[in-house]
Design a protein around this nucleic acid. Sequence first.
DNA 1: AAATATAAAACAAACGTTTGCGTTGAGAAT
DNA 2: ATTCTCAACGCAAACGTTTGTTTTATATTT
Lengths: 341, 341
Amino acid sequence: MNVTIKDIARELGICYSSVSRALNGKPGVSDETRKKITETAERMGYRPNELARGLVSRVSRTIGVVIPEILNPLFNEITTGILETANLNRYDVFLCVSNWDRKKEAEYLKAFIEKRVDGVIIKSADDSPPDSFDSLRLPVIGFENSSARRNYSFVEVDNVRGGYLAAKHLLDCGYRKIAFIGGKKNSFSHNDRYKGFLKAFEEKHIAYNRTLTFTGEFNIDSGYNVARQVFELHRDVDAVFACNDVTALGVLKYLDQNNLKPGDDVGVVGFDDIRYSDLPMINLTTIRQPKYLIGKILMETLLEDIRKKEEGIETVSRKIVLEPELVERGTTKHNFIKTDL
Amino acid sequence: MNVTIKDIARELGICYSSVSRALNGKPGVSDETRKKITETAERMGYRPNELARGLVSRVSRTIGVVIPEILNPLFNEITTGILETANLNRYDVFLCVSNWDRKKEAEYLKAFIEKRVDGVIIKSADDSPPDSFDSLRLPVIGFENSSARRNYSFVEVDNVRGGYLAAKHLLDCGYRKIAFIGGKKNSFSHNDRYKGFLKAFEEKHIAYNRTLTFTGEFNIDSGYNVARQVFELHRDVDAVFACNDVTALGVLKYLDQNNLKPGDDVGVVGFDDIRYSDLPMINLTTIRQPKYLIGKILMETLLEDIRKKEEGIETVSRKIVLEPELVERGTTKHNFIKTDL
DNA sequence: AAATATAAAACAAACGTTTGCGTTGAGAAT
DNA sequence: ATTCTCAACGCAAACGTTTGTTTTATATTT
């Protein structure tokens, strides 16, 4: 049904190999016939079959991407960077959402292999990235979890520094009883941010009460519920560092419903700087991750690895660390002085 | 480098066609050899090459999706529905973002054809969906723009009714000087929502001052700027119907910065009911689109069309219309009575 | 004019599958 | 003993490309 190079060859009474060479700009065909070929290809509406092409050339110009969520603004923006960079380089992307399910993740990876993608980008659902790639020679790059040390590259933000910046800022403002609401317990990002968080206290020789440490899920409801827990258990908490902005939104929701004014009554710092957190109604102080850039670098690094592999150049696993940045907004106030509520 | 069915056949001293049949559960191979085959396939780590498979079977189990944006919460949730439904049915999705660029859109479609996707879902960047499919027999389904009547199916929300619900609600509350901030001028959704909007006025025999009609882009800044325009030009406006929630957020931002209280001073209704619009800090009254469901139905309908095509059954273009729903929140108040500001 | 070089085109194998058809051989029916 | 049936398996073509090799035709050299 579709036009093939054989059809074009038959139309012109020549061999189809010449058509292939002509259309791919390879030598071995005269300018005259080349012109005739491109013209008839155009006229007949020829569309190369990338499946056949990929079968012999072993290149599919396709990347597989697995992320845990897409609704989450963090991954949303990272994905945007990934997709735009891919498309800029004429690659197509299989996008798969694991919902933090390790099993699904493995299934997607299997499908990627069967569809012969040229490379894979993965934010693993847990902190032991799949090892099924170790045997294949498929270029892979991960987001976060670099500490799990695989033989592939990683991109991530300096989470220790992020946690440090958050705590230091809160302490500088004058907040003292600071609750830490982390992400999944024992996840690398959680641990690193907590580590940095504690470091700020140490540096200022302020003792940290570890009973103020909590963990939550990556959504608003969780943030809300944990906030309630925090304030019911510890009436004297005067600030919260939430390990991501979505959780922070849940905290803000709790404060709003309990007539606590962010910044004045309770300081709040988030992490990520998601879209809309700069709205005046939200105005969340946060640690910014360069989300779009992360996606862009993930894809660019992967494409470079793919190119090198095609050229037979050995690649080394890299770990690319980006800097987080404090964004001061209205949910923290300088010169905070505790007033008993 | 990869294990093939020929490798398995050689290992067992049989013909590779038997391997194919065994692995695909087809008849013509004894239970005994079938078992041996599946075992060695497993042992050797065989992964079928979907490129080769697709080449002969003409089925790739791959869907191409083109959307204008992914950052936008509306498309974000629709995409979630699309992806999850695809994955549930063991399809992979090429996701491409057009950024409302007609040319990019065409490029993606071309790539889809070359990669031999089984079907396409598209929210076209403008209101004349690409016609390049008319010749191909590729199953396609669109989101919105159904009025452009192509020979493929569409899913959309009843936009006329949505506009009507918004205006009726505002009028019922007591708002009278209502600004309409639309989307891209002359887009079908814009026109339909405006049509419904006007209908509510007619029904109540209230004249509508058409100078209160504005258009904007699909982002916060635009909403903010148009809001400023609205209120600088028309000091007596007491409510705004924004054609989408993102624009409405821009309006809320403007109100916040000008000490106007949503609901009490100015009624605001959005459209879509995006994530986070239910946060107490935002609390936006809006017309809900069943976003996830839209994505799900888009994919399910497409897959059905694909299945029918594979079975040689003729398909007819359908237009699936979903109902929008008014969600009352804090940015509109009943018994609003105009007080001169 | 014969030998040689070169560009253009044809030939053919390969990529890894699926699948229609032909072959084989063992047991059942005659 | 001969024929028939039928499952199990092998053979080979096909899907639409790319690409190395061979043939052909033309131009160049001696």
